[in-house]
Nucleic acid binder design. Structure first.
Lengths: 155, 155
DNA sequence: GTCGTGGGTTCCAATTTGGAACTTGCTTCA
DNA sequence: TGAAGCAAGTTCCAAATTGGAACCCACGAC
């Protein structure tokens, strides 16, 4: 299986991974959520090679996660902003950060804190069930085939 | 920056990405959550080369996400199971699946459904604030440096 | 003793990365 | 008028990683 076949799999994990399943892409997205928008700034902050950065930004734009917005003419200059589709990756980012905070934090504690503007407090993300509102964990979930399952449903 | 420097960054995203920020690793984990445990079964289901599979499983074991458990002697055979640390990746997996379901589903709909055993209904994961219990989205969160921030706090 | 099975390892070619220099359009400063 | 700077890329090449396929080993079954 190659990158370009991945998004054709009948699996939402595979399809999401085809967009974000890459080290640099995830780090670029981290910066996007920290309000970084310009090529040079991504490059300096991440230490990624310009070549790869251009490639990853291009792919994210093609995937509809970022959009190029001109912020000046003569010479034309663009910046990259999260689209609504990109903003929807927020729970995924929070889940990544939270796992890192929980399992990989150094002895000095977590590098960043997240404050919920609505209640004013620093918080952790909690995943709950959309139906009953109770927290969900791995053992409390049963997976079964949906309408888009391949004929030989996996699992 | 190279793979082996990534886990030293003072950033929970970078540190998590150093463990799971790889296409095959995420697909291996998908299978783990679908109760796949054995080398051959991973290999057949994923179409990954045996070489890479061995490498990714080794790395996941080293990261404490999976553990090797002997399921027979003579000849010794092992299977790979999620540890508690691995099970904690469940919200992350759910977030990946949910984004794919929302933004990448084919016209036939989502491939898999998730049933919450506690309430018996198919559900979507919702990310809420651990303090007030209300849903959280990108625009409602303010990020600020925590105790583990580098001296020049990023953002 | 030959076949099958599970869990790997080895080898090599093809692809992807990393690093550094070069390009393009336009502005500013001397 | 010319030199220098800036943002956003692109080009080139060496080094690392992947994909594909074959090979290995311990055992058990036929």
């Amino acid at each position: 299986m190659r990158w370009d076949e991945l998004d054709k799999e009948a699996c939402s994990v595979a399809r999401t991974v085809s967009v974000i399943g890459d080290r640099w892409t995830l780090l670029v997205l981290r910066e996007c959520f920290l309000r970084v928008r310009r090529f040079e700034e991504f490059q300096t902050r991440l230490g990624i090679t310009r070549h790869l950065l251009a490639d990853r930004l291009r792919k994210l734009v093609k995937a509809g996660v970022l959009q190029k917005v001109a912020y000046q003419d003569r010479p034309k200059r663009y910046e990259y902003r999260l689209t609504d589709r990109g903003l929807d990756l927020h729970p995924l980012m929070m889940a990544i950060v939270h796992w890192g905070d929980t399992h990989m934090a150094g002895r000095r504690g977590r590098p960043l804190l997240h404050r919920h503007k609505a209640c004013g407090q620093d918080f952790d993300p909690v995943t709950v069930c959309s139906q009953c509102g109770e927290p969900v964990d791995a053992r409390g979930v049963h997976v079964h085939p949906g309408p888009g399952a391949p004929r030989m449903a996996r699992a």
